[in-house]
Amino acid sequence: MMSYVADFIFMPLIAFVTGLGLVLMARRVRAKIERRVGPPVLQPIYDIVKLYAKKTQISHGIMHDLSIMMLLGGFITAEIFLPVPGFDGLAGEGDLITLIYIMMVPMLGLALGVGSCANPNGSIGISRALTAMLAYDIPFIIAVTGACMAYGTTNLIEIVQIQQAGGPASWGAATMPLLAFGGLLAVHGMMGKEPFEIYIAPAEIATGPMVEMSGKYMGALFIMQCFQLYTIGVIYTTLFLGGGENWPFFLAKVFAVVFISVAVTNVYGRFKTDTMIRWMWKWPTGIALAGLALVMAN
């Protein structure tokens, strides 16, 4: 029982703190590429505390509030179902498929909240975000399917154990490099970084979903960003990089996954929506399908 309590409290907390680090890394890397200093170390925390400490909090109705709860709740749930070193409590109760669908709950919540703000920019942003989801999820799903076929299970704990049993040579990235590469491209789209940043697009739709978010609503979005980067990093690490043996290695892998994305993002512009779909359905999907074929052939 106590282990469950520890899971429920510490896993989201660790995810949040790690996510803060990931956000800071993203901002710092970007600053370095843009040849400037970048934000101070505590900047992500300052931003979130500042937003929560706003003295007026504008709401656009109950659904707007509920969406924030769904957003945080969905991601907290996702964190609890992730296998991380030392805490696997609930990863066995729901598998990889469950996890992928749980991650859609906060997205749906956000979409509903943005819709209830009644701002056309927000609605267009959600329309683009969902379109982007359709674009990047197909290669991602192929990668996940291929990995599950290769491991013969969707149980996250077992996936990690299978990879750790054989050392780095048995990591997904080594045994199925094509799937891992296709998945990495899809993960880049999932993080919403350029060139796939079509749903924030400040110059086009004025930051889309965030357009009416203020105060703690915006703060929740900042927290969501932390969770999102962490969750994506962990899922990719679990599937293809052998999961976590211990915390230092594990975090290094998660940071590496996110780093690849944030390092290449700054030299690209933003695709148009249809270009992104075409690209995603051409390259990562093709690569992942080739990887899937290899897995099936074995």
């Binding site: 590429i33 843009e34 040849r35 400037r36 350029e194 060139p195 940043e197 697009a201 400040p202 110059a203 086009e204 700054n266 030299v267 690209y268 512009g269 933003r270």
Partner: peptide, 16 residues
């Protein structure tokens, strides 16, 4: 022009 398509790096360098 670069910033309209999210390529802020070019804007940062160009403005500098």
């Amino acid at each position: 022009n670069a910033a309209t398509i999210g390529l802020y790096t070019n804007m940062f360098w160009g403005v500098t």
